[in-house]
Amino acid sequence: MANIMLWEAIRRAHDEEMTNDPLVICMGEDIGVAGGTYKATNGLYDKYGPERVIDTPISENGFTGLAIGASFIGVRPIVEIMSVNFAWLAMDQIFNTAAKVRYMSGGQLEAPVVIRSAGGTAHQLGAQHSARMEKVFMGIAGLRVVTPSNPKQAYGLLKSAVRCNDPVFINEHEIMYNMKGEVPDEEFFHPLEGSEVTRPGRDITLFGYNISVHWCLQAADILSKKHGIEAEVVDLYALNPLDREGIRNSVSKTHRAMIVEEAEAAVGVGSEVMAIINEECFYELDAPPGRVSAKNVPIPYNHTLEKAAIPNANDVVNAVLNMFGKNG
């Protein structure tokens, strides 16, 4: 078990998959000679050469489409889109081609392409570099969406995504690449569906994914130590499809739910999980489910305002205390 950074975990997954299968390639802006914006492909250019580690022009829709076309005939591309803000430009190929081609060809073709992209609010990157776009991707039939909250997941999810025959979008986070965590030394493949109880509890379920899992864990700690509330934390590493059974199991046990998301509330993970709770276990609830979300604004540049726009662990604590009628 090695304690490594998240970028190192992603790099290791690339390396192993590229060694395992000569048709695995990776491509994106500055991923080759320069080693990658987040170092996730560092050193691979020297090891595998320019045919397999491809520095692309700044043509997101073009190179994503190229990867999809190559995947039709057996190539296994891992595309890095430098930032999810730029992934908007590749939506056409991801949604119109990758997600639909198996269906509209009556099962003749599939697009086993992996698209990784860094999203989230980092440090004062401004409105056009701070998008949280998982809500947009997760509502598309035919496209899997996963989002790692730690290095182990980042490694194992990418490994499985490369081998899976569906297109997979991996939603990473700008400020999590240097986060450290344990990754098993032996090869391992993380499921692309399901959820994980990261911290068991009995009084309320906190649903998080990617960075918000960490806010949930911090909040659960505070709630336990200061308020005697034992929160269960569920990590929704798979956003499409969402884990109905896992959501039901946890809420049926705790009878309360709070969904914590870094994105704006509208049409998001929170609203979707709430809908699932309604459909699956409404009568098990002791209180209406709540959500902690970002303000409905483009992200401001000013650091104080930026921090105020997105939730943190304290916001989660306060929302839970409110739900329990313990605030003010």
Binding site: P22, L23, I25, E51, R52, N61, G62, F63, T64, G65, L66, A67, I68, G69, A70, S71, F72, I73, G74, V75, D92, Q93, N96, T97, V101, S105, Q108, L109
Partner: peptide, 29 residues
């Protein structure tokens, strides 16, 4: 697909990069 007719696509311009990708696949193989 068995005749290597890789499809008709409805988004104007959509096949341009797909064709480049098929060519990339040919080259790799």
């Amino acid at each position: 697909v068995e005749h290597r007719f890789m499809g008709g696509y409805a988004l104007v311009g959509g096949p341009f990069p797909l064709a480049a990708g098929l060519a990339k696949g040919i080259k790799m193989k």
